[in-house]
Simulated scan of single mutants.
Amino acid sequence: MPKIVDRAARQEEILDAAVKVFARKGFAASRIEDVAAEAGIAKGSVYLYFESRNALLAGVFDSYAGKAAGVLAELGSGSPLERLRRLITGAVAMLAAHPDHARVLLDVWASNPPIDMAAVYREYRGAVADLLSEAECAGELRPGIGAGHAVVIVGAIEGCLVQALVDPELPLRELAEPIIQICVDGIRR
């Protein structure tokens, strides 16, 4: 009797293996054979799920984007600045929980990746800008705070991530509160 394989679970196993390999070796130096070996499957099995190395990278990126979208979906209710606080805390926690995903993204930032990383940044900046706009309407912000500050807030999160990736002694999760103190409390009226 043939073995029944759960396609979704196998695809997730391959993506998890790809994240580990890409984070360890870098995307440019990684091969499909490396991913297959990490997943404990034959090279041809990877091709049953992903047509190329670029498709595999796109799958890794989609997995990361899904995690990022989950953070945005869980902002809940409350004042705009309270939701911004939850966004920062959630984003830092998600990045700290998935450092290999972050390493892969850092690796491909400098290249010309076959993925739309700008779209994820636009989504995050848009969410932050919307919260800032709501906070302004509610009279919660100091004068002069606008959409440009959304770029700075996302940059603060990403900057802390990059530092934590290059210096493993830096506790990324513990940086959520200082980011909040500067990027939320610092703009409050």
Rank of each mutant, 00 (worst) to 15 (best):
A28F: 13
R31N: 11
I32P: 05
A36V: 00
E38T: 00
K43Y: 09
Y47A: 05
F50T: 01
S52R: 05
A55F: 05
L57S: 01
G59T: 06
D62N: 12
S63W: 08
Y64E: 03
K67D: 10
A68P: 07
A69R: 15
G70Y: 10
G70E: 09
V71D: 02
V71L: 06
L72E: 13
A73N: 12
P80C: 09
P80G: 12
L81R: 00
R83H: 07
R86L: 08
R86S: 08
G90Q: 02
A96Q: 07
A96I: 08
D100K: 00
D100W: 00
D100Q: 03
V104L: 00
S111P: 06
N112C: 08
P113S: 02
P113F: 01
D116A: 08
M117C: 07
A118N: 10
E123V: 13
Y124E: 14
Y124W: 14
Y124K: 15
A127E: 14
L131E: 05
L131H: 05
E134W: 03
E134V: 04
A135E: 04
C137T: 15
E140G: 06
L141G: 03
R142E: 13
I145A: 07
A147V: 15
G148C: 09
H149L: 10
H149N: 11
A150V: 11
A150C: 14
V152H: 11
G155Y: 08
I157Y: 02
E158A: 14
G159M: 12
L161P: 01
Q163R: 15
V166N: 11
E169P: 07
E169L: 12
R173Q: 13
E174H: 13
L175S: 05
